[in-house]
Design a protein around this nucleic acid. Structure first.
Lengths: 164, 164
DNA sequence: CGGTATCCCCTAAGATACTG
DNA sequence: CAGTATCTTAGGGGATACCG
């Protein structure tokens, strides 16, 4: 059963106990970490966004998402279901029909996620700019280092040829 | 130079063009995806949270975080710096002194992230409950399946022994 | 002190095949 | 249709060693 979260209870360690940054911990067992991992994984966000619009069947989701493998979609849905963010309803028809919909809890998470998306949209040009600037600096330093290396080589060669 | 983001421009595809869920895309080159990956990686969030309090040096961060390798901390900081979320200042003293601080952009991201953390804290009991319920159901189904399998085995044995 | 370079391992995700 | 089981591969991340 390809386990999801580790079976150990493991609360947020809170070892330093001075304030709540310790709660944003990277160690396993931390709620924040786990939800973040869920939200950030490759497909969950897209599934949540799609289900927020309307109930969808497995195959509909698969078609809509494009690029997701059957395995990953199934896994993603199991995770979301386990966390109570998505509900799964099986209709005993033939062929079988399984519907997924966002729970109320999932809906509130979607609201929260939207603020992150909004932030990203609002700042994407700043980020792009920062990246361009960083890459320019990096390229310049790289070029500098290469010039210096070439210079050292030249000097070394001169010394050697002088010796002969 | 262990590259960060792919060099291809690759905007959010927006192929369907009907509305913005397509923008939350999982394909590479999507801003939302990239920021999400940054936020969600193992250490970035913790670094941002720590730097939001005050400027810190490399070693201070390393001590504070506990568990992070030198390599991963350096990588994380380079990424955050490239995205313009953290600034890096080198003081040409001896021994060298390098200070990291959150930029204004990083600060606004921190605000946004906090709402996600708040959501998590507000709903962790619901999530825990959902998980417990899910695991109970799964365990029950598992037990059922095993009972059924045992039953089939028994019948099969009976049939075979009757045949002899 | 503040890194980068190298090696290596292990897990997460993809491809493929099979089932109720 | 809606999955699970199995195999394989890519890369995230740790340990270690070395450099300015």
């Amino acid at each position: 059963m390809e386990d999801g979260t580790s079976p150990t209870p493991g609360y947020c360690a809170d070892t330093d106990a001075d304030y709540d940054v310790a709660q944003w911990d990277a160690r396993e067992g931390c709620e924040v970490r786990q939800i973040l991992d869920r939200v950030a994984d490759k497909w969950s966000l897209l599934v949540i966004a799609l289900l927020e619009r309307r109930t969808l069947r497995f195959t509909e989701l698969r078609r809509e998402i494009d690029g997701v493998s059957q395995r990953m979609l199934a896994r993603t849905l199991r995770h979301l279901e386990r966390d109570g963010l998505v509900s799964r309803t099986v209709y005993a028809t033939v062929p079988p029909r399984v519907e997924y919909r966002l729970t109320d809890l999932g809906g509130t998470l979607h609201e929260t996620i939207k603020s992150l998306v909004t932030w990203t949209e609002a700042h994407q040009s700043e980020i792009a700019g920062a990246r361009a600037a960083y890459d320019r600096r990096a390229a310049a330093e790289q070029a500098d280092a290469e010039r210096a290396a070439a210079e050292r080589d030249r000097i070394a060669r001169d010394v050697l040829s002088g010796r002969r």
